[in-house]
Amino acid sequence: MNRPELVCPAGTPAMLRAAADAGADAIYCGFQNATNARNFAGLNFTPNQLQDAVAYAHARGAKVLLAINSFATAGRYDLWQEAADCGAACGVDAFIVADIGVAAYIAERHAGRRLHLSVQAAASSPEAINFYCREFGVRRAVLPRILTLAEIHQLKTEIDCEIETFIFGNHGLMVEGRCSLTNYAVGISTNMDGACSPASEVHYDRNTAGVVTARLGSHVIDRFAPTEQAGYPTICKGRYCTSPRDEPYYAFEEPISLNLMEMLPALIGAGVDALKIEGRQRSRAYVSSVVTSFRRAIDAVVAGRKPELVDLVALTEGQKQTQGAFATKKWR
């Protein structure tokens, strides 16, 4: 049985050290600007921090993957180019990219450095993935969270590179890299600015009855009774009214997290090369707990033992978990 890489998030240098210490095989991170898809205040790395992080990770046998996975925008393309050059100088092991222009630049200027295709590229077929492999020498594709396990198994036999799938964390409902909902609501683009539902646009207010209204910009995304826990207002996790329904409902998805702990044997059996944990915007404690649990579980599966299933529900969004699209076509 192959031993897949456990790929873990780091929003800060402290998180990166925690992930490396907890047994991550690879850690992904980004710079403090629009070049990556988690461009949030207080997150991400300066060039000096990245250099130190690479040294720390390498000393513990872990790789560092640099996410430059937003879409370079005409007029400020230099920003993405500089991020790639800086990452190469820091000695990162691979670049995670989505934009064709960025991939072309790295393939030409930093030939030989590994390129991973970000989930933001939305490549969900062998034809799409193989296009990126042929054009840029992409070595690994991160799959959108829309395929069933059987479909992943089949896909693996038809592509020219490794595959990485998400196993834990935020459960994105929209095809990544093809969503302008935040920009429509508040004028900040996920693709161009690297932020979905930025905290600067999030507002909560509580009325005298204790009902909490959560807004993104001027838009009410959800409303919570005093007995409910108020969730973060993301458009695709909000409650809306529509004519076929009598009551407000989660039109896209309820606040819920992906957790594929129980599917690990099947995923590894399907030949998945890398297993990814989402959550660069989460805490160091989150990374420590989740990485430690998945490290043990993966090692058990690879050794042919039954993995001990750890309860991670407290670390999930809305304290609810799902196997999402991976388990059944009914999810669609």
């Binding site: 409902l173 929209m174 095809v175």
Partner: peptide, 16 residues
């Protein structure tokens, strides 16, 4: 504005 693998029309009517 967005695409998904899930059909939101079907979901609005309680279907897959």
């Amino acid at each position: 504005l967005a695409l998904s693998a899930r059909c939101f029309h079907a979901r609005a009517h309680g279907r897959s």
